[in-house]
Design a protein around this nucleic acid. Structure first.
Lengths: 193, 193
DNA sequence: GTCTATACCTTGATAGAC
DNA sequence: GTCTATCAAGGTATAGAC
């Protein structure tokens, strides 16, 4: 298992995960992570060579986290349509979405900006790919062609991202709920060709 | 006119506007603005007391900039439906949207994160409000009730934001074009009640 | 594995000459 | 109005004791 299962490493990743979400990646300093974990700054470099390595670990952690959420949607029902409905209602369950936006979307937007060094645009597509492919699977299971399924998956993710962004900008829970229902209604019409 | 019409002040705001878009607000330093304008760092404090004051000026600049774009949509046609169509196709005209996302959406996401000091969440709603109210006006002109018009305006902005976000994450121009056409088609069905 | 101390740089901001 | 010089604080990263 190497150092990857170390308890202190886990605490660092968990604290960084939350801080990157609440404060943003660039605005999170080693001191912030140190304060949150109680571990001294210098200790971080035993587990991670650079701050970007911490980011990689956080992204990996979010992939696993969202993977578990998708598994939960899978176990809720065997109906692909019901699974997609559960997927759409995911942001409604989160308390912090209105305050800090989508953890995937906001971090992607931040990392999509020009970095001083090498463009590390690769990072967040991993999480989006996970959701995208899962949605594609559900649409395909509903009898949609592969090409059309990918279109629908992109449309679905785009609509959810837009709704969450606007809802967080205006801190408008009513809009988040109403627009989520609209997406679910749209899903229904789309399935029926 | 005071110092607001000063040519050097304008250069600072223009450079900051571009840098805040390309690199993000937090990742843009006074040195960056200094390099872009040729003006020494210390000069900035003659026009702006803090970095946040520069941000305010940039937001004000973007409000004017988007206000002009909306005027262009207004003068293109007297048909509110055609004006909304022109509005939806705005991201297609921009070369940089695929690379850096929406200048309004990405900055809003960045500023929506918890700041160390006072929550300056107020900033970017100004630009969104501008677009929102303009869209409401167009829907109302089409005979929609005020309440329904605001719903449609929010839906439209959310869909555009989501499309631009996904398109920039995947650097996918084809998706941006296809999804924009879908939004325009949705607009048509919505107008016909 | 864990921690302290610190190097080195960049940041936003200030003081004051011209 | 414009510029240089500099400050104090904070950033990432490193060295090395324990």
């Amino acid at each position: 298992m190497g150092t990857k299962g170390n308890i202190n490493r886990q605490r660092i990743v968990e604290a960084a995960d939350r801080l990157f979400y609440v404060r943003g990646y660039n605005q999170t300093s080693f001191s912030d992570i140190s304060d949150a974990t109680g571990l001294p700054r210098g200790n971080f470099y035993y587990y991670f060579k650079t701050k970007e390595d911490i980011l990689d670990a956080v992204v990996e952690s979010r992939v696993e986290s969202f993977s578990q959420m998708l598994d939960a949607c899978m176990q809720a029902t065997s109906d692909p349509y019901g699974r997609l409905q559960a997927f759409v209602s995911m942001p409604l369950q989160s308390e912090q979405v209105l305050q800090y936006g989508c953890p995937i979307g906001t971090l992607s937007a931040e990392l999509g900006k020009a970095q001083s060094e090498h463009d590390s645009r690769v990072h967040m597509t991993a999480v989006f790919d996970l959701l995208r492919h899962w949605c594609v699977d559900q649409f395909v299971a509903l009898g949609v062609s592969a090409a059309r399924a990918d279109q629908l998956a992109m449309d679905l993710l785009a609509r959810m991202q837009g709704v969450v962004l606007l809802a967080s900008v205006y801190n408008d829970r009513a809009f988040l709920q109403r627009a989520s229902r609209d997406i679910q209604a749209w899903l229904e019409t789309v399935i029926k060709h």
